[in-house]
Design a protein around this nucleic acid. Structure first.
Lengths: 340, 340
DNA sequence: ACGGCTCGGGAAAACGTTCTCCGAAGACTG
DNA sequence: CAGTCTTCGGAGAACGTTTTCCCGAGCCGT
């Protein structure tokens, strides 16, 4: 009923604590018959190792801290799911901290997690600049992988989608389907996703339409901004709205709908991320799907590597290729609206 | 740089380990001058207590396990956020486990968390019946609070929304706005939310429309089922579709839209939970908002109580009142569609 | 002045592991 | 057959806390 320890198993199997430990951990060969006795006793007594003691002795908790800005951002749940599954598969547990988009809270959580002796940290930084100090300090203590957003150059390993390639996919698709007057609705923060998507649009849109790089409206990554931005850009009657994420795109669609604009007949709308909502809005949002499973797998792999193979090797910045998902919001101009 | 321990602080402040521990933990009065010296030394050295050692000695990790079926269910992120914030405010950390709707995985995660010596567990059970054994076993070892869904009677403390009251709010609203031919699209699982909402509809709908309790279609809690269910029930031309959650409602809206039905003119649609998407669909979904912040607060309070005050007291089943959120999908039959 | 206090402080025993030594065999080698 | 390796097993020292003792000094009461 109460906790059964190595000592109990040792007594029950008539050998020493050390032997039991060796059998159960497999750290050193042990005589076949003894091993069998020990295993039987452990099984019979329902022995469960005490992670606290193990952590104290071996200075490893088997625990990874996951720090993110806002779990309610609809892109994160799928990522968190993939990450926890990948880490659990490696026998690690995940300590979750939501820091509410506040770099100060983020720093506190990171410090707390370090105090709890996490073996490593997975961080989606809240802010490119104001998160840097805490992240850099933490990265000096444990392996740390940045995800989704960067945090300045050279701070830590990072895994993210290739925003530039994603934006190129969108622009190519729009060009191929006859769009010519393109307009960007983005976010002005310093968060790397915002900056990269902005930059990729600026770099790629010129080929499609010389005036396009100039048609840019910047706000934040929210539905509300998507709605408001349409009021700014719609008077120019663009035939495509490239949004920096799906929330913005959904807001834009709502406002366009209310203004009576025909999507995709008059104007195409695209998003980024492929959050679940993107498939469910009417019309469905054409978007760039982040390779969530691979992002998680790469992050887990990188972490495992840093944790086992010493922390050798140069800092790595892994960029994964995204995939274009075409939905009704950008079907070709000439085509009739396809049935939902 | 490396870890600084109590011993280091003791040496630096010229007193014993025991005294340092007492000062820092405040477990026993210590001379003012000594205390000051100790605190200064701890500060200067950047002392951070080792949670593993503390956990080993005091048999409490300051950690709570949070086990849920699917973080990607859009109702959970807000709940998880509120829970983590409430627990962090109490100085506890949260170990997250997503069990992918699989009771076997759930049982494994629970066992692992117990092995990691969590002080308590917060569980949203995957299945009313097949989760019971693991939950009951865990509840015998640590304080355990069930959330959102039940797990059979008498298993553990629980905190959830009052599904019956929520369904009554919906039915009253529909009655007050002139709906008469009501139809229920629900889920047939044994999950308590499914059963309670189903039961509440059956109990309350008769007052509105004697035939209503019979008009019921059961599937699962998904958008796909919402779409499919409309095909079953729409031929009867009800003037209100009561859906067991928002995902079903959104699916129903999509299919109704495709069928050319006028919502809310011809037919009202209601959901349950008030997930973020419910406000963003077109039309917005009238729904029952779960008091997420209060649910989290109550769960945290209950846990704290069990953890401090011994585990005295009878088992508690807390039910919180929900709130009706009226959106465009159910504006009165006679009214014109209001501008979004 | 002396037995009881409280009060500030230290030594040391836990807590349950892992891991480094050691020792006692037996199995080789020469 | 003496010596040197392996192999299996135990004793016991860590790991960094918390906590239980215990001790000495001051202070009160009588």
């Amino acid at each position: 009923m109460a906790d059964v320890t190595l000592k109990d198993v040792a007594r029950a199997s008539g050998c020493s604590i050390a032997t039991v430990s060796r059998v159960l951990a497999g750290t050193r060969p042990v005589g076949a018959e003894t091993a069998h006795r020990v295993r039987a006793a452990a099984e019979a007594l329902g022995y469960r190792p005490n992670h606290a003691a193990r952590a104290l002795r071996s200075r490893a908790t088997g625990t990874v801290g996951l720090v993110l800005p806002q779990i309610t951002n609809p892109f994160y749940p799928t990522l968190v799911r993939a990450l926890t599954h990948a880490l659990h598969a490696d026998g690690r547990a995940v300590l979750l901290a939501d820091c509410d988009d506040d770099p100060a809270a983020e720093a506190e959580h990171i410090a707390d997690l370090l105090g709890r002796r996490v073996d490593a940290l997975l961080v989606i930084p809240a802010d490119e600049e104001r998160s840097r100090a805490a992240v850099a300090a933490a990265a000096a203590r444990v392996p740390l992988v940045l995800m989704d957003r960067g945090c300045g150059p050279g701070v830590a390993d990072s895994v993210a989608v290739d925003n530039t390639a994603g934006m190129a996919l969108v622009l190519d698709h729009l060009a191929a389907t006859g769009r010519r007057t393109v307009c960007f609705i983005g976010a002005d923060g310093t968060a790397s996703a915002a900056a990269e998507r902005r930059g990729a649009y600026a770099a790629g849109a010129g080929a499609l339409d010389p005036g396009a790089p100039g048609r840019v409206a910047l706000g934040d990554f929210s539905v509300e901004w998507g709605r408001a931005a349409v009021d700014q850009v719609w008077p120019a009657r663009p035939d495509a709205l490239v949004c920096a994420n799906d929330l913005i795109a959904i807001g834009a669609l709502q406002r366009l709908h209310r203004l009576g604009a025909d999507v995709p007949g008059e104007v195409a709308v695209t998003g980024f991320d492929d959050i679940p909502m993107a498939a469910l809005s009417a019309p469905g949002v054409t978007t760039v799907r982040q390779p969530v499973a691979q992002l998680a797998a790469e992050a887990a792999r990188l972490l495992a590597q840093r944790l086992s193979g010493g922390d050798a090797g140069p800092q790595r910045a892994i960029r994964l290729a995204p995939e274009l998902v075409v939905r009704e919001s950008s079907t070709p101009k000439r085509a009739a609206r396809t049935p939902a």
